[in-house]
Amino acid sequence: MPSQNNTVAATKTSFRILEELKRADGAGVTDVASELGIAKSTVHNHLQTLSEEEYIICEDGTYRVGLRFLELGEYTRNRMDIYEKARPEVNALAEETGEMVNAAVEEHGEGVYITRAEGGQAVSVDTYAGKRVKLHCTALGKTILAQLPESRVDEIIAIHGLPERTENTITDPAELKTELDEVRERGYAYDREERLPGLRCVAAPVVADDGNLVAALSVSGPTTRIKGDLFHEEIPELLRSSANVIEINMAYS
């Protein structure tokens, strides 16, 4: 994200440190300082402040992100109308398909999972509520991008790029835009092992009365099961039906 002239350097340093603690799944002062190229004394002061404010915890010299962030995240999510309206449909769709079902929104040019549910035969993948993913390599993300103005798509590409996640990831802007045209035409998007090898996904948009995108809804599963008519016809139809229910509930309840 482009830097603004009125940003506060110390605050940005605190967040860089928090992101490093998350990435490393916990770290000491020396490790954080070395990884970020920041003086140990500076890192120590930031960690002490974050600990006193109860945003991180320290266990035997290892600092970790604390549960105070869960409180903030739950507060934010529970204020979102789409979360309350989508959650029952996500659960029902997971039960019906037996697979992993997710709902996501766009924030700062990335996809953010707001709720998920696992069906009886769902495979375990690296998604969880609050996880952020690049938009170009997921069905959810391509569904979101297809609903945005081209100028906004160009802006997101400029900021986040099109990093390759697997050999199937679309990394060329022109190819991605062609794919987005197809998504708009058929009304749903595919992820053909573009973020994780062996995983396919289908996603459909949830659109408000004013025509603006609210969220994207997806079903994902292993390539050994998500194939043929299930991949190309049955799951897309289930997704569009569930998205329509959410849209109606948002408009009239």
Rank of each mutant, 00 (worst) to 15 (best):
S41G: 15
E106V: 10
I159A: 09
A39W: 04
L72K: 15
N5S: 13
R165L: 12
V133A: 08
R152F: 08
R192M: 13
E89D: 12
R152L: 08
A243W: 04
F231M: 12
E164C: 06
R165P: 08
E19Q: 15
R195L: 13
E19K: 13
M80D: 09
H46T: 03
Y190S: 03
G198R: 06
R186Y: 06
I156Y: 04
A9K: 10
P88S: 04
L135M: 07
E247C: 10
M1F: 07
R16Q: 10
G221W: 01
A94E: 07
D191I: 09
T178F: 15
Y83D: 06
R132E: 01
I235M: 02
G228T: 08
D31G: 10
P222M: 01
V183C: 04
R23C: 00
G228K: 08
P149T: 05
P2G: 13
A174C: 12
D60P: 08
D25Y: 10
T62Y: 08
H136K: 06
R79V: 09
I157A: 07
L50M: 04
L239K: 03
A24C: 07
Q4P: 14
A122S: 05
E155Q: 13
G120D: 10
V105S: 07
L196S: 09
P149L: 02
E164S: 08
L70Y: 01
E164W: 05
Q4N: 15
S220C: 08
A86K: 01
V153Q: 06
I144N: 00
E118A: 14
H44Y: 15
L140P: 03
K227F: 14
V206F: 04
M100R: 09
R64M: 04
V112W: 03
F231K: 07
Q4L: 15
E185C: 11
D81E: 15
I248F: 15
R77H: 09
G221R: 02
E35R: 14
Q121S: 14
E106L: 09
N45I: 14
Q121E: 14
G161V: 03
E182Y: 12
N249W: 07
H136P: 06
I156C: 02
N168E: 10
T166S: 04
I17G: 02
H160K: 11
P2H: 14
K131I: 06
A189P: 03
P149H: 05
K177C: 11
D31K: 12
K227I: 11
S242A: 09
E53Y: 13
P197Q: 01
E237K: 12
I235S: 01
E179A: 12
P88W: 01
T224K: 15
L50T: 01
S253P: 13
L135C: 03
V43N: 00
N45G: 11
E182N: 10
P236M: 06
A129T: 10
L217N: 05
R184C: 02
L196Y: 09
C58R: 10
L213R: 01
V29A: 04
L47N: 00
T62L: 05
F15N: 00
M250T: 08
A10V: 11
S3N: 15
T11L: 09
L176P: 07
A117V: 05
E106I: 12
I17C: 02
F69D: 00
